[in-house]
């Protein structure tokens, strides 16, 4: 139908053919361009997954002899035995270095999950209450306070890290979960984001609820939170992702063992992964084991992304933050 419509716009068949050829070339070029960039994006992932299952000897053989090792065959000519193995993953969970220090990603997982869940709950509680106060209540100095908070969003986090690092030492919070959960748990951006959603709830609803005898806080829990649930979900997801990817702050304050629970390493997954590469004490020499570590750290995020794609993509386009 569309074709018959366009035919009317052309004086001669040749002109139409030329037009169609141009459209088709454009489409082909578009897909070629997209595929090339897509390949560039995807190659590290494919390399990561394939290499994590490779026999270290086979991988090294390919590497030294410049064999293209992205999709190798089941048997490798350079070595005896199968090309693929699960040993790399086993090493991630049971590795013992010569000095007796261990790499235990199960522990790092546990630490990270604990910190991620606690800090997300903490963030949600403080954010919901604060944005409720800014959106729903009238009090003296509200606008001034809000402006001051917004202005702090311009300040780079490094500036706070310098003093917070000292505060954590003074509070004896080094290597504790408290330093990972509370110090950067309150985010001005999330308060701002949720306040916008809260403010868009019509005032009539509040009056009606008041008529039915609802107080401020009951209104918050029964009406505002259910209505703003998509935004709250987005905040929770971004906060969980941020906690999972955190590296700088945990590395500064929690790279040792817990002062209360002896020998409990406080490393989170990102730091644990970095320690696989730093050779001195806990380092592993095989690239395949290191890459298996990368897969272990990335995989949960991928599953998470596939489940919450909608929330993540919407939240990200609004915020532009990456943990």
């Amino acid at each position: 139908m569309a074709n018959r419509d366009t035919e009317q716009y052309f004086a001669t068949p040749q002109q139409m053919r030329r037009y169609k050829a141009r459209v088709i070339t454009g489409h082909v070029l578009s897909y070629v361009f997209l595929s090339l960039v897509g390949l560039f994006i995807v190659t590290p992932f494919i390399f990561m997954i394939v290499t994590s299952f490779r026999n270290p000897d086979a991988y090294n053989y390919d590497n030294i002899n410049s064999v293209f090792n992205l999709f190798p065959s089941w048997w490798n000519e350079g070595i005896d035995g199968p090309n693929y193995t699960l040993n790399n993953y086993a090493a991630i969970f049971t590795y013992k270095s010569a000095t007796g220090r261990t790499i235990n990603f199960a522990l790092y997982y546990l630490n990270t999950l604990y910190v991620a869940i606690c800090s997300t709950l903490f963030t949600l509680i403080t954010t919901i209450l604060a944005s409720f106060a800014f959106a729903r209540c009238e009090f003296k100095g509200k606008n001034l306070l809000f402006t001051v908070l917004l202005a702090t969003m311009m300040v780079p986090g490094e500036m706070m890290v310098i003093t917070n690092y000292q505060t954590v030492q003074a509070l004896n919070w080094a290597n504790t979960f408290a330093s990972l959960i509370f110090v950067h748990g309150v985010s001005v951006f999330y308060i701002f984001y949720l306040r916008q959603t809260f403010s868009s709830i019509p005032n009539e609803l509040f009056l009606a609820a008041k008529v039915d005898g609802y107080g401020h806080f009951r209104y918050l829990f029964r009406v505002m939170i259910p209505i703003a649930m998509p935004t709250i979900m987005t905040i929770a997801i971004l906060s969980l992702m941020g906690a999972w990817n955190a590296y700088i702050w945990p590395n500064l304050v929690a790279s040792g063992t817990n002062p209360i629970i002896k020998n409990w390493s406080m490393l989170l997954v990102s730091n644990g992964l970095m320690s696989l590469f730093t050779n001195s004490e806990t380092g592993v020499s095989e690239d395949t084991v290191r890459i298996a570590g990368s897969v272990i750290v990335t995989a949960p995020l991928f599953v998470f992304f596939l489940i919450f794609r909608k929330y993540i993509m919407r939240g990200v386009s609004r915020s532009g933050i990456k943990g």
Partner: peptide, 19 residues
Amino acid sequence: VFFLPYVTNTIALGMVFRV
């Protein structure tokens, strides 16, 4: 596909690039 790099750990993929 283009969004994938965003939901990865910067350290983990940096390590992959290193290798």
